[in-house]
Simulated scan of single mutants.
Amino acid sequence: MSAQGRQTIASYSPCAEAERAVDYLSDQEFPGERVAIVGHGLHLVGQVVGRVGFGRAALSGAAPGALIDWIFGIRQARLQAANVGHPIVQPLEPGENWRWCYVHEAVV
Rank of each mutant, 00 (worst) to 15 (best):
I37V: 14
G53W: 01
V38H: 04
G55K: 11
I37E: 03
L44T: 14
V52T: 13
G39Q: 10
V48L: 11
V38K: 09
G53I: 05
V49T: 15
A57M: 09
V49I: 07
H43N: 14
S60C: 09
H43F: 10
A66C: 10
R51P: 00
G41S: 03
Q47W: 13
G53Q: 05
P64G: 03
G53P: 01
L59G: 06
Q47D: 09
A66P: 01
L59D: 03
G39T: 07
L44E: 13
G46I: 04
R56W: 01
G46K: 12
P64H: 01
G39R: 09
Q47K: 12
R51S: 07
G61H: 06
G53E: 08
L59F: 05
L44D: 07
A66G: 06
V38A: 14
R51Q: 05
G46P: 00
S60K: 04
G41F: 04
V45Y: 00
A36G: 02
G55A: 14
G61A: 13
A63R: 11
I37L: 15
F54T: 08
L42C: 06
V38L: 11
G46M: 12
R51F: 09
G50E: 04
L42M: 05
L42D: 12
G53C: 10
A63F: 08
G41K: 03
G61D: 05
L44R: 13
G61Q: 12
R51A: 07
Q47F: 12
L44W: 02
L42N: 11
A66H: 09
Q47N: 12
S60M: 12
H40L: 15
G46H: 10
V45C: 13
G50L: 06
S60P: 00
S60E: 15
A58P: 00
G53L: 07
H40R: 11
F54H: 08
A63Q: 08
G55Q: 13
L67Q: 08
V45K: 08
A66N: 05
H40W: 06
R51D: 02
L59M: 13
L42T: 15
A36T: 07
